[in-house]
Amino acid sequence: MTASLSIRQVGKRFLSRGTIVHAMSDVNLDVGEGEFVTIVGPSGCGKSTLLNILAGLFPPSSGQVHFRGERTSGLNPEIGYVTQQDNLLPWRTLRKNVLLPLEFRGVSISNGVSERVQTLIDKVGLSGFENHYPHELSGGMRQRVNIIRTLICDPKVILMDEPFGPLDAQTRLTLQNQLLELWREERKTIIFITHDLGEAITLADRVVVMTGRPGTIKSVSPVTIPRPRDVYHIHDSQAYREIYDKLWEELRDEVAKVM
């Protein structure tokens, strides 16, 4: 497996109220092309900081990030970012929101493009809502718009920061299922942050556990449960329970430390 993203010795310090805060230090991780990696860790361990660095919103204080062998600096059009808040534009309809990144990139809206937009809208079950405004959609629907808005540009890597965090349990399962389907069809590399260990296991090829501040990688565990996975019943399997228990042990120590 070739590395899509290589994270080398990445650290980040912030100046906060006159004192230096080490948000994260010495993070090393290789993410393969088309791989689905989830990251769990106690709150404040710098997970979001890591994604912001990978997205190119700000540079690391130390270390470097390589994308397909080349050192990154700044924003990269090949990397998409799905945030926890859906960040849709309230004055644009669903369809117009999905078109936003294409407008940003100067893509003219040809028939082919319109078709792809419609295909994605259909795929996540939003057909019929194309001309609705965000305030007319539920949280789960908005988050799906957020995801397909990122997919429309066809990035190679998608970073996801607790995208299903604010959703209720049933909606969450539905979206996990849809995300896995999209991932299988579109073959993206995904780095997905969550605070829900079950979600991390359900989705991932590998689960990364991070330590409390300064955040660093504690362990990386492959999830060998075969695909396609049934998000609704995966929790009953023996393999799931074994890895859940193992990861929970690791995570519990870290959570206890920050409490």
């Binding site: 924003l75 945030t83 960040n87 936003l100 940003f104 990122t150």
Partner: peptide, 20 residues
């Protein structure tokens, strides 16, 4: 957040001013 997201989605300064 909206501005950061727009930057990641490829928005230039002018486009972000106009559209966001």
């Amino acid at each position: 957040d909206l501005i950061n997201v727009s930057r990641v989605l490829g928005g230039s300064k002018i486009a972000i001013l106009r559209k966001i």
